[in-house]
Amino acid sequence: MPIIEMHMMVGRTTEQKNKVAAAVTEAVAKSLECSADTVRILITEHAGDGFYVAGQTMAQRAAARTQEKTA
């Protein structure tokens, strides 16, 4: 039973999450030659202050990009 973990920022709609779950399920079932019924997907959503890239929160990175554009 494949278990897929997805981590993403808060803000995507249920429809978007349904679409990605369906696409990932199809890809995993096809590539592993298993039933889609055996594929499990866990989606964990993170707020802007709980998701870091290069030591900065996503909010900090967005603010830095905005400053770069206005400078």
Score class of each variant (00 low, 15 high):
residue 2 P to M: 11
residue 13 T to C: 04
residue 25 T to I: 01
residue 60 Q to T: 08
residue 24 V to Q: 03
residue 50 G to C: 06
residue 30 K to H: 15
residue 2 P to T: 08
residue 7 H to T: 14
residue 47 A to L: 06
residue 23 A to Q: 11
residue 70 T to R: 09
residue 28 V to W: 04
residue 14 T to D: 08
residue 53 V to G: 01
residue 33 E to P: 00
residue 19 K to L: 11
residue 62 A to G: 05
residue 11 G to N: 15
residue 32 L to W: 06
residue 60 Q to F: 00
residue 46 H to P: 02
residue 1 M to V: 14
residue 61 R to A: 02
residue 59 A to W: 05
residue 39 V to F: 05
residue 3 I to E: 06
residue 4 I to M: 08
residue 47 A to M: 06
residue 35 S to C: 03
residue 39 V to Y: 05
residue 71 A to D: 14
residue 63 A to M: 06
residue 23 A to T: 12
residue 69 K to G: 02
residue 52 Y to I: 03
residue 30 K to I: 04
residue 26 E to L: 08
residue 52 Y to T: 06
residue 14 T to K: 14
residue 22 A to S: 13
residue 3 I to C: 10
residue 18 N to A: 07
residue 64 A to T: 13
residue 69 K to W: 07
residue 2 P to A: 07
residue 47 A to E: 13
residue 70 T to K: 10
residue 11 G to C: 07
residue 28 V to M: 08
residue 4 I to P: 00
residue 56 Q to L: 15
residue 37 D to R: 14
residue 59 A to P: 02
residue 45 E to L: 02
residue 58 M to F: 05
residue 10 V to S: 09
residue 28 V to C: 05
residue 18 N to R: 14
residue 31 S to A: 15
residue 13 T to P: 02
residue 52 Y to Q: 08
residue 51 F to Q: 09
residue 63 A to Y: 08
residue 20 V to G: 00
residue 7 H to Q: 15
residue 18 N to L: 03
residue 25 T to E: 09
residue 8 M to N: 03
residue 68 E to G: 00
residue 42 L to Q: 09
residue 41 I to W: 02
residue 14 T to V: 14
residue 44 T to Q: 07
residue 25 T to Y: 08
residue 24 V to P: 00
residue 27 A to C: 11
residue 67 Q to I: 11
residue 40 R to P: 01
residue 12 R to W: 06
residue 4 I to F: 07
residue 51 F to V: 03
residue 1 M to T: 07
residue 67 Q to Y: 10
residue 36 A to F: 09
residue 36 A to P: 14
residue 7 H to L: 10
residue 64 A to R: 11
residue 55 G to R: 08
residue 35 S to R: 08
residue 11 G to T: 07
residue 41 I to A: 00
residue 63 A to K: 09
residue 13 T to G: 06
residue 2 P to D: 05
residue 16 Q to Y: 05
residue 9 M to W: 10
residue 54 A to E: 04
residue 34 C to A: 13
residue 36 A to E: 11
residue 25 T to H: 02
residue 46 H to T: 07
residue 41 I to H: 00
residue 43 I to V: 12
residue 31 S to M: 11
residue 14 T to S: 09
residue 49 D to I: 04
residue 36 A to Y: 07
residue 67 Q to K: 12
residue 58 M to E: 13
residue 5 E to G: 12
residue 3 I to R: 12
residue 18 N to Q: 13
residue 33 E to F: 03
residue 1 M to S: 12
residue 57 T to S: 08
residue 50 G to Y: 10
residue 20 V to M: 10
residue 66 T to P: 01
residue 57 T to M: 02
residue 42 L to V: 13
residue 52 Y to H: 10
residue 33 E to K: 15
residue 35 S to H: 15
residue 66 T to C: 06
residue 31 S to T: 15
residue 12 R to A: 02
residue 25 T to R: 00
residue 67 Q to A: 15
residue 68 E to I: 04
residue 57 T to D: 05
residue 1 M to R: 13
residue 29 A to H: 06
residue 55 G to C: 01
residue 18 N to G: 04
residue 43 I to C: 02
residue 25 T to W: 07
residue 38 T to Q: 08
residue 6 M to L: 14
residue 26 E to R: 10
residue 32 L to V: 02
residue 50 G to W: 13
residue 21 A to Q: 02
residue 8 M to P: 01
residue 17 K to T: 01
residue 44 T to P: 00
residue 58 M to D: 11
residue 63 A to P: 01
residue 8 M to W: 05
